[in-house]
Every structure is written in structure tokens, then in C-alpha cells.
Nucleic acid binder design. Structure first.
Lengths: 232, 232
DNA sequence: CGTAATCTTGATCTGATTCAAATGTCGTGG
DNA sequence: CCACGACATTTGAATCAGATCAAGATTACG
């Protein structure tokens, strides 16, 4: 496969869904060369900022990023956490409409927007795959709006935990959920303050629905009640 | 153009962006027949519900719809108001992830998912157009999350008014903004109660930033201050 | 007109924020 | 290994923005 590795890249993980989609196309296998560049970034780095010209689409291979938007006075909304196998940066306008920052060390694969644009015209399936990804993102965004607008603190935190548990894969009953982000990130995601998030965690702890191994490792003890608490 | 008109259809408006995209494709103009069905719906009707199998994509020709999601206990989040020239129902999963209801009488054009799916493989530009629409929706969704999670009542209502003013087209300085939805809809959109929305309107009125011709016709008197109040 | 709905206003209550301090965790260097 | 400091998390007490409950005022409509 025709992939350039950047500076400090690791070859251990191979891009999954997106790349697979490209590889499986029967037509013009010879000209497959989508110039995806795999590279590694340390935790706490900015991949791109809201407003910058959107010249790349990224696939997360391992690690986690946060997507956020800021108000002029510094208030921050985290609109999503992006785990492995997901794309970021689909925007198709001239500029990114959000900022992407690494939470952990990540390995990502970068595709240049210009190359993608060219390919999309030749590869209907690629475009459809991107459309599917966008539709999925949109679905998640709608769920989050429901949470932000309607739910109270307990419901928000419960929903957040279930979301994390879900995207941690591991299937049902993988009771150990690891939270790579800090309380401040969680707070900005659910639209509460750090203090309220912390209080809510202890509330869940006291009611024996969860247990905290460490501050960022949650054991879910009672899935059914957590589900109820999330109000769906 | 090959369009069927349903029962009580009006021919006055011709589908814009989406249709135009199809028509402008050079290839296979003969087989252009995308079976779009134009029809009229009265106010207060449900176009489709969250969870139903998503078998259609709709283009709004005139009028306005609301997109909403419900919690089991009836709490409602309106995730968007859809004006003319916009698409609803891009989901690509098996089911709609939200409910669409008419606020005013609307004229819409319905495209069957199956037909669209077939066409997408032949028409890269169509798929790209859908992708662009999805990306735009995603951008708006992110803005709304920022609003729901970070802003206070005044900022929310100000943002809402600016959004409505903006999508009312009419260019800048079209100070008359018509609000086809009721206060309850607005409340569920910005994540407040009807009472708080009402109080906020009077607050804006007293500070001479807006004036209310009627309950659903707002005159924006001071754009700059409204802009500040929205915090961007 | 009169009735029902929507919208506005007022008084009170409450969940979340704010401010402040204590506790816990981790890495560094003595 | 332990002491120290920096930082994240938790807890507590006071305050406040928005919700709730309860009337009025206004508009729409048969």
C-alpha cells in the first residue's frame, strides 16, 4: 500500500474503515495511491484550529482527540471526543468549523483535501463513505443537542459514561471504562462545571452505580440503573 | 423537467439547489429522471418520525419545518428549523434519527432513498452535493451545541434572533424578522422555558435592541448590540 | 362576542454555579 | 525512600440564574 510515513511514525496500526473502503474499490487499482500520511502526535497538541483553511481530513488510528469550539471570552464547548477509526475534518467549506486537539498521544493518517476532492469525482464509493461518516456524525450531534438542552446534571453524566463505554468497544459488560480526558474536558462536554461533574460522580459512586478505580477509570456496576439515569 | 406533482401541489416554486445540481450534470441528460415528487403539507403535520425507516430525502421548497428529538418523558429538543432550499432526511442509516414536523404550510419535494442511492453511484457530483449539505448541517449543529452548552438566556435568544434574521435571507438590514414558530418552539430550541424566553424578549424590548410588531414579528433596531449580546 | 389558546408578568423555589478550602495524585530531586 | 511542590479532584457554603407555579393580558377564532 502506498503510504508515506512521517517523521516519528509507527507502522503498528493500519488505517481501517476509510482505507479499507479505498482498497476494496475494484476500479483502477493501479492508481490507488491516495497520499495518506501517517504520523504520531503527543498529547496536548493542536491538530488544527477553528477558522484555519481546511486542507486535510484525518483518520484517527489510535488515541483520542477532542473537538471544541470557543466563545470570544474563553468559554469552551467540547462537541465531541474522537476515538480510533473515526474521521475528523470533513468540512467541505473553506475552513474548519472547530478546533481539534489531542487528549492522548495519537497516531493519525492525514489525507490532503485537494487529493480527496480529485478522488471523489472518480470514486463514488469513496464519496458515499464520507457521506455515511458525516451522517453518523450528524446523528451523534443531534443526540448531544438533546443532552445539552434537556437533561439535568445526573442524566448528562450518566449519558456521557454510557457513550464512553459504548465507543470503548469491548462489547457489553466490559465494565472497565477508561476516561482519557480530565474533569474539565468532561464538564465542557456536558455543559456543566468541573465541580458539578465531580459531585455527580460521587453521587453515582454513593448509589453504587459506578465505582472509581482511579479518577479516570470507572467501573460500571449497575448498567440498568445507569441506563435509566441517562433517560434513554 | 421530469417531475410528478402530487395531489394538491403548486407549481409556483421550482426546487433550487439540489435539482439544479442534477440538471447541470452533463452526462446522461436523457436519463435525468430523478423521481422527485412535489407536494404540499398543511401546518402542524409530521413528515416523518425518529426511528422510522428512512426511505426519503426531502427538499423544502417553501415554508418551514422543525426537527426535533424527544426524551421518553416528553421533554423535547428542537435541533433545527428548516427553511426553504434546504434538505432534510439525509441519514444513510436505516432510520431517521429525528422527527420532522411542519410549522407552516410547506411545499416539499420528496426523493426516494432507493432512487437516490442508485443515482449516487452514477453521479459523483450529486453525492458531493449531498456531502456538502451534510457538512453544512454539521457546522450549524456545532454552533448550536456551543449555544446550548455555554450561553446564558440572553445570549441564547440573541443568537436565535440573529440566526433567524440570517436565514430569512433579505440581506443585512432587513430589520423585519418573521418568526413562524411559537414561543414553546423557541424555548425548546434554545433549551429554556417559555417563560424565560418571553422575559428575555421583553428585556431586549426594554433595552431598545428589538421591537415586537406582533408576537411573531420582530424588528431588530440595534444590530450591533444584538451581535454583542449573542457573544459572536 | 365569548371562549380557548398563546403570551406575558409576578412570586417563589431549586439545581447548578461560584468561591474557597481540603484532599489526593504524580513527578522530581534531595 | 521520602519530602516537596504543582496540579487535578473532591468537598463545603453561599449565591444566583433559570425553573416552577400561579395569575393576568393579549390574540386568534368560531
Amino acid at each position: 500500500m502506498h503510504v508515506q510515513f512521517a517523521s516519528n511514525a509507527t507502522a503498528r496500526a493500519v488505517p481501517q474503515g476509510f482505507f479499507a473502503c479505498l482498497a476494496s474499490e475494484t476500479e483502477s487499482m493501479g492508481a490507488l495511491a491516495l497520499p495518506g500520511v501517517v504520523c504520531k502526535k503527543p498529547a496536548g497538541e493542536t491538530l488544527f484550529r477553528e477558522g484555519e483553511t481546511a486542507d486535510g481530513v484525518y483518520e484517527v488510528i489510535s488515541g483520542m482527540l477532542r473537538i471544541c469550539k470557543l466563545l470570544p471570552d474563553g468559554r469552551r464547548q467540547i462537541t465531541g471526543f474522537v476515538p480510533a477509526e473515526r474521521l475528523i475534518g470533513i468540512s467541505l467549506g473553506g475552513t474548519y468549523s472547530y478546533t481539534a486537539e489531542t487528549i492522548t498521544e495519537v497516531v493519525i493518517c492525514c489525507y490532503r483535501r485537494s487529493a480527496l476532492d480529485r478522488l471523489m469525482l472518480e470514486r463514488p464509493k469513496l464519496t458515499r463513505h464520507l457521506l455515511a461518516a458525516a451522517a453518523q456524525e450528524l446523528h451523534v450531534a443531534h443526540e448531544q443537542m438533546l443532552m445539552l438542552g434537556c437533561k439535568d446534571a445526573l442524566e448528562k453524566v450518566a449519558s456521557f459514561l454510557l457513550l464512553m463505554a459504548g465507543q470503548q468497544g469491548g462489547g457489553i459488560d466490559a465494565t472497565e471504562v477508561h476516561l482519557p480526558m480530565d474533569r474539565h474536558d468532561i464538564a465542557d462536554y456536558v455543559g456543566l462545571t468541573v465541580e458539578t461533574v465531580s459531585r455527580t460522580f460521587t453521587r453515582l459512586k454513593r448509589s453504587k452505580v459506578i465505582a472509581l478505580r482511579t479518577a479516570n477509570c470507572v467501573e460500571i456496576c449497575d448498567w440498568d440503573r445507569l441506563d435509566e439515569m441517562a433517560s434513554r
